[in-house]
């Protein structure tokens, strides 16, 4: 499903190029889940953004479901992201001018995959049934993140990429959101790649890798059936 080969990325700085990823190799099967861990600045988010097609690598390839990202134009990447990727951010990034219902349906409608039944199920399972006509600013952090989960899953994407989805939530809410995410991902048959700092969260996923100074720490790779 997801194959990352010899991925390199650096950012220009006034002091010269700053290498962030220095040759990443990764493989994740369809329907599988992987926790990406590491210290701040280790390159986790950069790797996630590269896999999402939000940024381009300096070297190396990313293949997802048989498609090579490096061969795609910006427009093709946008089309592909719209249909195949579900993104969840730590900061929720909901659209403040739209209601919860519109936010939930937004990407699915964009991708032409809007399924009202699935939408309703998602809203119910996420506990958003009563909140559909509210605006994001009227919701708590946990509620906002549940809307973000729903939005990412509404289009039934092949790959869900979550960047510290519980990083902004308290322990209880974090647990609830994570359970919901794992349950819904498993139900929809998506593949999940999650960046997290929490070993507790990571422990609930099938695979775990730790990034260290732009490389995968070989000692850290754990795969569970």
């Amino acid at each position: 499903m997801l194959q990352v080969t010899d991925l390199h990325k650096h950012y220009p700085t006034p002091q010269g190029p700053l290498p962030v990823l220095r040759g990443i190799d990764l493989y994740l099967e369809r329907g599988g889940s992987l926790a990406l861990m590491g210290e701040s600045g280790s390159g986790k988010s950069t790797l996630l953004h590269l896999i999402a097609g939000l940024d381009t690598p300096d070297r190396g390839h990313i293949n997802i479901a048989g498609k090579a990202l490096h061969t795609m134009s910006e427009r093709q990447l946008a089309d592909w992201r719209r249909c195949e990727i579900g993104l969840i951010f730590q900061q929720f990034n909901l659209i403040g001018s739209l209601t919860v219902a519109d936010n939930l349906a937004f990407q699915a409608r964009l991708a032409g995959r809007y399924d009202p039944v699935w939408q309703q199920q998602l809203a119910e399972q996420l506990g958003l049934g009563e909140l559909l006509q509210r605006y994001p600013e009227q919701l708590s952090g946990g509620q906002q993140q549940r809307v973000a989960l729903g939005r990412a899953l509404a289009s039934k994407p092949a790959l869900v990429l979550a960047d510290e989805p519980t990083g902004n939530l308290d322990e209880t809410t974090s647990g609830q959101v994570l359970n919901l995410l794992l349950k819904l991902v498993s139900r929809s048959g998506c593949t999940l790649l999650m960046v997290t700092h929490s070993p507790h969260v990571a422990a609930q996923l099938q695979q775990r890798v730790v990034l260290k100074a732009g490389r995968i720490d070989p000692v850290s790779v754990v795969s569970e059936p």
Binding site: A52, L54, E74, R75, A78, D79, W80, R81, R82, C83, I85, L87, F89, N93, L94, I95, G96, S97, F106, Q107, L110, A111
Partner: peptide
């Protein structure tokens, strides 16, 4: 801030 999430969800910059 309003445009970045749309871009992330597959709306091109154009």
């Amino acid at each position: 801030g309003q445009l970045a999430p749309l871009w992330a969800m597959g709306v091109t910059r154009r």
